[in-house]
Design a protein around this nucleic acid. Structure first.
Lengths: 337, 337
DNA sequence: TTCCCCCGTCGAAGCGCTTCGACGTCCCGC
DNA sequence: GCGGGACGTCGAAGCGCTTCGACGGGGGAA
C-alpha cells in the first residue's frame, strides 16, 4: 500500500504538505501542488479511509435508512436510494445502507461508532419512535417525510397535503361533484405513515371546501381488491365521477376494474393519481398525476445534510410544491355521466 | 466520546485486555470479561470504527453494487439489497451502497481506500468490463450472476439455464408442442446480460430436445408491447399453447392481452414464468412460476464473502437449482386447443 | 521436585492520516 | 529602513484501536 509518506518522499515535501495540497486547508504554491499531484498519480496513492476518519473525525459516509414495510412502493424507495447515492458522491461522500429492521439500535450504532457523519431517514411515521433518538444524536440528520412534531429536526418531502388538495381541485374545476380517494393499504394508515395521512387530509379539506361529496378508502394492492373497491364505490356512490388514487400498484388494476364495470376513463370517470411519472405514463391508460419527485427529494436531502455538516444554516422544513402532469385521464363532467 | 482507555480504567485493566475481551482473540478470564462488559455497558462504550479499521485493516464494511439499467426489475434488486444488508449484519458487517454508474473507478476507489473489505457485484454482463478489475483487486468479491468466463471469480446465481429448461419441460410434459419465450427488452440481450441469455439457451435447448416448435421474443415492458407481442404470436404460431415469460412487469399485461384475444389461461394457453413468488402469486391469474430467490442469493453471497475474508475455502461457482411452484396457470393440452 | 508450557494480562508500538504551532521568507506600508 | 503580516512549508503530536512480545503464576508431566 502506498501511503502519504511515500508521496511526500517522492515529491520532496513533508507529509503535511501533501495533506494540505489534497485538502486545500492551507495555501500551497502552485509549483508544489503540481509536483504533489504528479507524485500521487505516479504512485497511485489513495488515502486510507479509516486513517482519515480517525484523524479528522469525519468518515465521509452518510447513513441511509430504507423502509421495508408492507404497502410502500419499492421502486420509489429505490429511486430515493439511488439519488441519494448519486448526490452524496457529488459531495465526496459514500452511503451506508441500513434497513429499518435494525431500528433505533442501528442508528445509534453507526452514529456512535463514527461510522457515518450524518443520517437520512426515510418513511417517517407521524409519531416515529426514532425521533427522540435523532434529536439526541450528536450527528445531523435529515428526514424524508414529516412527523407530527418535526421541531428540531430537518425534514423534506413533497407537500402531500397540497398534492391531495390539488387532485381534488382539478376534479372540482372540471365540474365533478362526487369524488373518492383510493389510498394505500389500511396498515399504512394504522401505523401512522405521515405522507399517506397528509394526502387524506388534503383530499378531505379540498373536497369540503368545494362542497363535494367525498369518501376515502384504504385499499390493498391486489387486482381482487381493486375489483372489490370499484364495485363498492359504484354501489355506494352511484354519482361518482372523480377518483384520486394514491396507491401505485393498484392504479392499473383499479382502472381495469372500472372499465370492466362499464365506466370509460375519462369519459365516465376522471382519474388522477399521486405516483411516479414513469408509472403514470406507462399505463395502458396514461393517468394525469402528481409526480413523486424522488430524485429531487433525495438530492436535496443530501444537500441539506451537507449544509448541516458544514455548519451552514439551512431550513428545518422543506415542502416541495406538487405539480400535476396532464395525461388525458380527466375530463369535464358530462351531464350524461 | 468514551474510549477504550476509559473502559480499561473503569474496569481496572489495561486497554489491550478490553480489546481482547471484545474480540476474543486471546483468552480472558470469566471474571475479567464480566467486569469489562459491565464497564462497557455502564459507560456506553462504542469502539470507533475508523480507529478499528486503521489498526486492524478491516473496515467491516462490504460494498454492494446495484444496477440501474433499464429492463431490470427494481423490486428484485431491492430484495437483493435488503437481504445482503440483513445477512451482513449477522456477520457484524455493514453495507456501502454503490451504483453501477460509478463504474470501475468506484470499485477501485472503495477498495483502494480500504473503505470496504470486500465487494458484491450485481447484474453481471457476459463480458463485463469490471471483471479484470475484480480479479486484480486485493479484496475478495462475489458476483451475483455468471459472466462468460467466471474463472478466478466467485459467482452465485439461480441456474437460469436450468430454469428455462424446466419451464419447457413442464409444458412438454403436459403435451404442448408449440411454445414461445417472451423475454426481457431487447437492450437487455444486446448488452449481454448473462441471466437473460441463459434463460434463452435453456429454453431453446429443452425445446429442441423435446422436439417442440419454439420461438423467442424479447419484449418491452408495456401494455402496448404486450398486446403487440400477443397478436404477433397468435399470427405467427397459431398452434401456440405454451408460453414462458421472463419479464416481470410484462407478465400481467401479457396475460390480459391473451385473454382479450380470446385465449383462456390455462384452458387454451398454459403460462409459466420466471419471476419473484410475490409477483406470480398476486396476479389476477396466479401463474405457475420459478422463483427468483433473491433473499437466498443475497444471503449466500454474503456467506461466501465471509468465507473468503476468513480464508475458508469456498466454491467458485454456486448455481441454485430452480424450483417450480404450481399455481394453476398450466394445463394439459387439449385436442380442441 | 523440576521443567515447561499454557493461561491471563500488560505495555508499547504502530496503523496512516490530519492538524497545530512554529519558522523562514517575502513584501507592503509607514 | 524596519516591523508585521501573509504565505508556504515542516515537524511532531495525536486520533482510538489492535496486536505483538513479554512476563508472572500455576499445573501437569517426567
Amino acid at each position: 500500500m502506498v501511503k502519504i509518506t511515500d508521496v511526500a518522499r517522492h515529491a520532496g515535501v513533508s507529509p503535511s504538505t501533501v495533506s494540505y495540497a489534497l485538502s486545500g486547508k492551507r495555501p500551497i504554491s502552485e509549483e508544489t501542488r503540481r509536483r504533489v499531484e504528479e507524485s500521487i498519480r505516479r504512485l497511485g496513492y489513495r488515502p486510507h479511509a479509516g486513517a482519515r476518519a480517525l484523524a479528522s473525525s469525519r468518515s465521509n459516509v452518510l447513513a441511509l435508512v430504507v423502509p421495508l414495510r408492507a404497502g410502500i412502493h419499492v421502486p420509489v424507495v429505490m429511486q430515493f436510494a439511488v439519488s441519494v447515492v448519486t448526490a452524496a458522491r457529488l459531495h465526496d461522500h459514500d452511503v451506508l445502507l441500513l434497513t429499518q429492521e435494525e431500528g433505533e439500535e442501528g442508528l445509534r450504532r453507526v452514529a456512535d461508532t463514527a461510522l457515518v457523519d450524518a443520517l437520512i431517514v426515510m418513511d417517517v411515521q407521524l409519531h416515529d419512535p426514532r425521533l427522540p433518538l435523532l434529536r439526541a444524536l450528536d450527528r445531523p440528520s435529515v428526514l424524508i417525510g414529516f412527523p407530527a412534531a418535526p421541531d428540531g429536526l430537518t425534514c423534506i418531502d413533497l407537500d402531500f397535503e397540497a398534492a391531495g388538495e390539488l387532485c381534488v381541485e382539478r376534479l372540482a374545476g372540471l365540474g365533478h361533484r362526487v369524488v373518492a380517494l383510493v389510498g394505500s393499504p389500511p396498515e399504512v394508515y394504522v401505523r401512522g405513515t405521515a405522507f399517506a395521512q397528509r394526502v387524506v387530509r388534503g383530499f378531505t379539506a379540498a373536497a369540503d371546501r368545494n362542497g363535494l361529496a367525498s369518501s376515502v378508502h384504504p385499499c390493498e394492492a391486489s387486482p381482487a381488491a381493486a375489483r372489490r373497491i370499484a364495485e363498492r364505490l359504484l354501489r355506494e356512490q352511484p354519482a361518482l365521477t372523480g377518483v384520486v388514487v394514491h396507491n401505485e400498484p393498484l392504479l392499473e388494476p383499479l382502472i381495469d376494474a372500472f372499465e370492466q364495470l362499464g365506466l370509460r376513463v375519462p369519459a365516465d370517470l376522471s382519474v388522477t393519481a399521486i405516483c411516479p411519472d414513469e408509472l403514470a405514463g406507462n399505463l395502458r391508460v396514461p393517468v394525469t398525476s402528481i409526480a413523486i419527485p424522488s430524485a429531487e427529494v433525495g438530492g436535496r436531502a443530501v444537500d441539506l445534510l451537507m449544509r448541516k455538516l458544514n455548519g451552514t444554516p439551512c431550513p428545518e422544513a422543506t415542502l416541495l410544491t406538487p405539480a400535476m402532469t396532464e395525461r388525458g385521464s380527466t375530463a369535464p363532467r358530462t351531464l350524461t355521466s
